[in-house]
Amino acid sequence: MKMYWSYLRILFKSIAQYRLSFWLLAVGQSLTPLTGFAGIYFMFERFGQLRDWQFYEVALCFAVVHLSYTLCEAFARGFDTFSTLVVNGGFDRLLVRPRSTLVQVLGSRFEFARVGRISFSLILLFWAIGNLDIAWTAAKVVTLLLMIVSGMAIVAGIYIVTASLCFWTVEGLEIANIFTDGGREMAQYPLNIYGKWVKVFFTYVIPYGCVNYLPLLYILDRTQGSGWLYMLTPLVGVVFLLPCLLIWRFGVKHYCSTGS
């Protein structure tokens, strides 16, 4: 942990060398989710509601998804851009250092410029909460935090799997964006507005639904029966991460025995 902190410090110092570029990126990047959100806003302006979902409920959903996604992009950037590390041989360097490859890759990049998007998502989150009439309990706050953390775990898991594929090939990995960017675009609306196969895929295969839609029902008091189950569904996201880490370990082993 101390070492990860040292990594962050040195990366921050690097960024500080390019001040203007940093601010431009930070501001520019925060505009991307803004346009996405504007789309939702104007849609509700026109149609009033989506299925039985109100504007601020969808806004909350949107904010949570974007927050966990951007946080993950910032922290797990090393995995997102892992192919460069393999291509330029930087991974060899990591292997001759006495720390786990996972921590070192995490520490190799941190996208500070995401601070723009993160703050946009936070503002949106609090704005949506402020306009919703939710009876907050400790359990609901925990659920909300779990949603964010588990969402990060899922995106990180996909990044790690994609990065692991780099050990075999560094070509054609764009396909993973279907699951990260695509998944995010899906998950920013409540899952029940989609068709059945979409629901099944994003609940059981890549469990965005479990960390977003289901616990959201609990927070908004839309659940039937026991709330506990809904509250704890975000943990599925953490479970999702485990096989991803196994794939990573397998990939590292494979790299060691093929090299270059």
Partner: peptide, 16 residues
């Protein structure tokens, strides 16, 4: 580390 002073790299290696 390319963009920072050499001594910073040394300190990170110390932690690693």
């Amino acid at each position: 580390w390319w963009d920072v002073p050499v001594i910073d790299s040394f300190e990170l290696l110390r932690d690693i």
